[in-house]
Amino acid sequence: MHGKENLTIVTEFIILGFPEFPELQIPLFILFLLIYLIILMGNLTIIALMCLDPRLHTPMYFFLCNLSLVNIASTSVTLPKLLDIFLTKRQRISAGGCFAQLYFFIVSASEEYILLTVMAYDRYVAVCHPLHYAVIMNQRLCLLMTAALWILGILFGAAYIAFLLCFSYCGSNEINHFFCDLSALLKLSCTSTFPLECLIYIMGTFVALPCIISTFVSYIYIISTILRIHYTEGRRKAFSTCSSHLTVIILYYGTMLCSYLRPTSTQSLTQNKLFAVLYNGFIPMFNPMIYSLKNQEVKKALSKLVAQIILCRDRKNFFSSCDCKTSCFRKK
């Protein structure tokens, strides 16, 4: 740090974590460690199922695989540092490390936002235009949409960080959050944050709002189509393919909008931390459960995978058997 006009220019930040609960640091460490492990295990299982089971090589599961990757990325950016704070009390993070953490979080959050919209469109085509589904949702379109959402996420993250790097951070360097959150950094700036706040609302108007509108318009068509199905079994099957995704959309959009699209003057850091725990911890943890518990194809694929693993473990000389290694996941 160095002095300038009687102000201390911040070159590092202190992430406070959860100072409101000093006596609960170890229980919180255990809680967030379990959340992180469940996120990793659940989402990696989803990815493994998509790769190993040919029946899941469809656009819906391709996008779900990308969602699992985004969930792993977003939580791996924030939760390991929080666990380190709980365990070692190392709360300091360099300014560069802080901006890097925020950048990758914004990238993954933006990608998830757009990806949920893409998944809604996929469900719209599947339910409302089932006969043309294979033609519309072809491999080329799926790859183009996936590449576009990753590129847009990278550009959004760069735009936010470019604005943040123009600000001066002086005086207090304590971030009252469990990671380098945008709202917490804005409160530490000693220059006007109006340009960045305008960018947030512009992004919300021209990016987030169209995503939300197109998602819910898709579901209006989906629900109206489902209600026109006369036989109960067909209606149940159509609704089951969309209910998991709709649940995730409501949870994720609701918490993100409440956290970032409120005026800065009305934002409470305690409320922001609560919302952040929801969209950066509990939602990624429950995503694999939501998609697997309500999806018969995923449950069948998981049962098949478990059965094959048990079969391999029961064989003699499992680790030295070339036959077992090469044939355990061979399609029956």
Rank of each mutant, 00 (worst) to 15 (best):
S172D: 11
G96A: 04
D122S: 10
T266C: 12
D323R: 12
L257F: 03
Y121E: 04
K300Q: 02
G97L: 04
A126W: 04
N6Q: 13
L188I: 05
F163M: 12
L69I: 09
F318M: 10
N295A: 08
L52N: 09
I213G: 01
E297T: 04
M41R: 13
Y124F: 13
I223K: 06
I283S: 04
K187M: 11
S108N: 09
L152T: 14
C211F: 00
S108A: 15
R90T: 09
N43M: 02
L16A: 15
T225R: 13
K316M: 08
A126L: 05
R140E: 13
L52R: 12
P130S: 01
C142I: 13
S76Y: 06
C128W: 06
T11K: 13
Y36V: 02
P80H: 00
K325E: 06
L56R: 07
S76R: 02
Y231M: 07
F86V: 03
T205A: 15
L79N: 05
I200C: 01
C312R: 14
G281A: 07
C166S: 13
S243H: 07
L246N: 01
E12L: 05
F32E: 02
F167C: 12
F194L: 15
I226W: 05
S244E: 02
F62R: 14
K81I: 02
A134V: 11
Y291S: 00
D323P: 08
F105K: 06
V298S: 00
Y103G: 00
Q271T: 14
S94R: 10
Y231T: 15
F104A: 03
C312S: 14
D53E: 11
L44Y: 12
V127A: 01
M41N: 09
F21L: 15
A126D: 04
T225S: 13
M203F: 15
Y201K: 08
L152M: 14
L165F: 04
C258E: 10
V70S: 03
L56V: 00
S168V: 00
E5L: 10
T225L: 01
D122K: 04
V277S: 11
E111S: 10
I283P: 03
A301P: 03
G254A: 09
I114M: 07
L64Y: 07
K299F: 05
I93E: 00
Y201E: 13
N287Q: 11
I290R: 08
I229G: 01
R55F: 04
P19M: 07
S76C: 02
K4C: 03
F21R: 14
Q139I: 03
T11M: 04
P59H: 04
L44N: 10
M60C: 01
D53G: 06
K325Q: 10
F104G: 09
D181M: 11
E12F: 06
Y219G: 05
A100T: 14
L305G: 01
